[in-house]
Deep mutational scan, measured.
Amino acid sequence: QTQEFDNEEEARKAEKELRKENRRVTVTQENGRWRVTWD
Rank of each mutant, 00 (worst) to 15 (best):
L18T: 02
N22V: 04
E30R: 04
E4Q: 04
T28A: 06
E21F: 10
E10K: 05
Q29P: 07
E21Q: 14
T37K: 08
N7E: 05
R33A: 06
A11Q: 02
N22Q: 07
E10V: 03
R24Y: 14
A11K: 00
K16F: 12
N31T: 03
E30I: 13
F5A: 01
K13Q: 12
F5S: 01
K16M: 13
Q3F: 14
R35E: 11
K13S: 11
K13T: 11
W38D: 11
V25F: 02
N22W: 12
W34S: 00
T26R: 09
T2P: 03
W38Y: 12
T28K: 06
L18N: 03
E21P: 04
T28Y: 08
E15L: 05
V25R: 00
A11E: 00
W38H: 09
R33D: 02
E4S: 10
G32F: 02
K16S: 12
R19P: 01
E10P: 02
R12Q: 04
N7Y: 07
Q3S: 07
W34F: 04
V27R: 01
R24D: 11
E21L: 14
K13A: 14
Q1S: 11
W38M: 10
V25T: 05
E10M: 08
E17F: 07
D39G: 08
E4C: 14
E15A: 15
R24P: 07
Q3N: 05
G32M: 05
D6V: 07
R12D: 02
N31K: 08
E4Y: 15
Q3T: 08
V25L: 02
T26E: 11
R24Q: 10
R19V: 11
A14R: 15
A14G: 02
Q3D: 04
R33S: 07
E21V: 11
T28I: 11
A14F: 15
F5V: 01
V25Y: 02
Q1A: 11
K20L: 13
R24L: 13
D39I: 10
E4I: 15
A11N: 00
K16H: 12
N31P: 02
D6L: 08
W34I: 01
V25N: 01
E9N: 09
W34G: 00
R24I: 14
E17P: 02
V25P: 06
E17A: 13
Q1G: 15
N7L: 06
D39E: 15
R19L: 15
E15T: 03
E9S: 09
V36R: 00
E8H: 03
N22S: 07
K20T: 08
E15F: 06
E8Y: 06
T28V: 11
D39N: 07
E17Y: 05
N7T: 15
Q3G: 03
K20R: 13
K20W: 04
R23A: 13
N31H: 06
R33V: 11
T37V: 11
V25H: 01
R35F: 15
E9C: 07
W38F: 09
G32W: 01
V25G: 03
D6P: 06
W38I: 15
T2D: 05
V27L: 07
G32A: 04
Q1F: 15
V36I: 10
K20Y: 07
E21M: 14
E17L: 12
F5Q: 00
E17S: 10
V27W: 00
D39K: 04
N22Y: 14
R12W: 05
N22D: 10
E15H: 03
A14H: 12
R35L: 15
D39S: 08
E15C: 09
R19H: 10
T28M: 06
N22A: 08
R23N: 13
G32L: 04
N7S: 14
R19A: 10
K20D: 11
E8N: 02
L18G: 03
K20F: 07
T28Q: 06
R23F: 15
R19E: 08
N7I: 05
D39V: 09
K13L: 13
Q29I: 11
L18P: 01
W34Q: 01
G32H: 04
Q29W: 13
W38L: 12
R35C: 10
D6Q: 06
E21G: 12
R33K: 14
A11Y: 02
N7R: 05
G32T: 03
E10N: 05
N22E: 06
E17Q: 13
E17C: 07
T37Q: 12
E9R: 08
T2H: 10
K16W: 09
T2V: 13
R23W: 14
K13R: 12
N7K: 06
Q1L: 13
R35P: 01
K13V: 14
R24S: 14
T2C: 15
R23D: 05
Q29L: 13
K13F: 10
T28R: 05
E21R: 10
Q1K: 11
G32I: 01
E9K: 08
V27C: 07
K20A: 15
T26F: 09
A11H: 00
T26P: 00
L18A: 08
E8F: 04
R24G: 09
R19Y: 06
V36K: 00
V27E: 00
E15I: 07
D39H: 08
V27G: 00
K13G: 07
K13D: 12
T28P: 00
R19C: 09
E15R: 02
Q29R: 09
T26N: 07
G32Y: 02
E15Y: 07
W38V: 15
A11V: 03
N31D: 10
R23K: 14
W34V: 01
R33P: 00
